[in-house]
Amino acid sequence: MNILEAKGLKKIYGEGENKVNALRGVDLEVKKGEFVAIVGTSGSGKSTLLHMLGGLDRPTEGEVIIEQKDISKLKDEEVTIFRRRKIGFIFQAFNLVPVLNVYENIVLPIELDGAKIDKDFVEEIINTLGLSGKKEALPNQLSGGQQQRVAIARALAFRPAIILADEPTGNLDSKTGQDVLSLLKVSAEKFSQTIVMITHNDEIAQLADRIIRIEDGCIVSKGEGR
């Protein structure tokens, strides 16, 4: 069953002379539990695609359906709350709220919803990501790799339908980056998460179960089969 579906996504920026066709009709399906990588050079539209999938921006045309709900038609407030409950984000940088410590950052989406925190589960995630000793640290006391791990933890803690990662290791050196990616992969397995990761790096993309290539706003390969 498809946990994420995109149908005929188009995104046009600007007008007239300055018109940019960022996405030219993209179709996409992701099954529950898959780890999918979307690869493309810069300017290929992969970031735009991710924004659409995550409800950060609205497509000019087309639908984005997550868990059978078309989020492209939701109002701003609704889509924000949908994101809060169903979509986890891991960005290249600046993921964490600087004024909250590691633990508070991790449980933030849960607290924003006023829900009860499953302390054991959160504890497990923290252990899996090797953050046990850092629960009270502030983001500026962490290394780049540790910050990304916290971002991963946050994306896992509220068990979203899907995690969207945008070049999660882009700002890290290769050694740390490898660790971070590995953790991402195994946590996804362990907690049965679906992940869609964007990267321009083929080697990183090889982590995924499936590689989708995007070029010039169009999907050129879907990497079927398993």
């Binding site: 950060l56 407030e77 924000t80 709350i81 994101r83 809060r84 984000f89 600046f94 709220v97 924003l112």
Partner: peptide, 16 residues
Amino acid sequence: IRFYGLLKTIGTTSRQ
């Protein structure tokens, strides 16, 4: 503004 953008991303509504 980036901070508020981040909050929005995580799921903080306009009202909040």
